[in-house]
């Protein structure tokens, strides 16, 4: 065995060790935050009480009411939405080879929002119908993006500019929808539009969790194809990837996850944009892992929810906090990618 082979093996071993450690640490952080969110509030609870109640290990009606009835749905939504946005964001960024290409920047999130808002204010539906509409809207936006920009290649600012254009177009339509709404529905829709994890209806949450259980493992299997697609279509095909099918499958996973997350919590901005880069920072040269990005998304959402609900003088919608944290990051990203010339 040559020294090169030995060195390669050592590098690979330290990479996978780092990747496992980082992913496990993120999972532990997400779990701790998940439990902590349910402990905090006007009725302080211990970790034991929370876990006991969630797992049906104890019977204490007042604790059960607060935990299972009020706090678990919110915490579970934050966690599930974070996982979905993190995974979806990193898939988009890797497929489009651009750190700016998260679903909220290429219009997908807004397509889903437009359809959901239309459902809320015009059709006055809720629950699974909103999820269904969001999914339809996200697919529509994805197809629109494909037709407008993707066919001619995906690199560079052109794609992002078209994405922002599509997003603005949808936002305009959303504004129009709101002016057409009655006061009550308009307020409901406005609240929804800011993005908040406290509002999910049980059906939307259950559908999102189900989708995560099926799609996250699928995304992990498709990670291999994603790594090949990153080399460009020619090289990916030469390596034996079925590029069209792989890309379609990855896009379907990412679009579905973001649509169902939007249906559950409204258009939460920036989480999908920053989760992947944060995970990549931690992973170092082993970057790109979808599970780590998903968990980073969950950590971000749970933290944002904690800050929004408990650290602010008056509780805020989660989307306000993620927006306040995400905007400076975006500016930094724009400044640095421009300098490196990596954005196109």
């Amino acid at each position: 065995m040559t020294t090169t082979a030995v060195a390669l093996r050592a590098t690979r071993r330290s990479r996978s060790l780092r990747s496992v450690t980082v992913t496990a640490a993120l999972a532990a952080a997400a779990f701790a935050l998940f439990v902590f969110t349910m402990m905090a509030g006007s009725m302080r609870l211990t970790a034991g009480e929370v876990i006991g109640s969630v797992l049906y290990l104890r019977d204490d009606p007042s604790v059960d009411f607060v935990v299972r009835g009020l706090r678990l749905p919110t915490a579970a939504t934050a966690c599930a939405v974070g996982l979905a946005l993190g995974a979806s964001g990193t898939i988009f960024q890797q497929l489009l080879r651009n750190p700016l290409a998260s679903p909220d920047f290429v219009g997908i999130t807004w397509g889903a929002s437009l359809a959901a808002v239309t459902g809320i204010v015009v059709l006055q539906v809720g629950g699974l119908a909103v999820s269904g509409l969001a999914l339809g809207g996200a697919l529509l936006a994805a197809i629109l993006m494909y037709l407008l920009a993707w066919r001619d290649g995906v690199s560079g600012y052109r794609f992002i500019l078209i994405g922002i254009g599509v997003a603005v177009f949808f936002e305009g339509l959303i504004g129009y929808m709101l002016t057409r709404a009655h006061l009550f529905e308009a307020r409901q829709a406005m609240h929804w539009m800011t993005g908040s994890v406290g509002q999910a209806n049980g059906d939307e949450l259950r559908l999102l969790v189900l989708a995560l259980i099926v799609l996250l493992p699928l995304a992990m299997l498709l990670q291999r194809q994603l790594r090949a697609l990153e080399l460009g279509d020619d090289a990916a095909r030469a390596l034996g990837t079925r590029t069209e099918a792989s890309r379609a499958a990855l896009l379907a996973v990412a679009v579905t996850l973001v649509a169902l997350a939007v249906a559950a919590a409204g258009p939460i901005v920036f989480v999908a944009l920053v989760a992947g880069p944060i995970a990549n920072r931690l992973l170092g040269p082993a970057g790109g892992g979808i599970p780590a990005a998903a968990l980073a998304g969950a950590v971000l959402m749970l933290t944002a929810d904690l800050v929004a609900v408990h650290l602010m003088p008056t509780p805020l919608p989660t989307g306000v906090v993620t927006g306040a944290v995400g905007a400076p990051y975006l500016l930094w990203l724009l400044a640095t990618t421009n300098r490196q010339g990596a954005g196109g």
């Binding site: 590098t11 890797q94 080879r97 080399l231 020619d234 390596l239 040269p285």
Partner: peptide
């Protein structure tokens, strides 16, 4: 792909990839 390999004229590398990682992708 197990029998026939091709190096395209202008392949693209993902950001930040190391040499060992890139070469390893040939094992796909």
């Amino acid at each position: 792909a197990k029998v026939l390999g091709l190096l395209p004229q202008s392949p693209v590398a993902p950001d930040g990839i190391t040499v060992a990682d890139l070469v390893s992708r040939g094992r796909y």
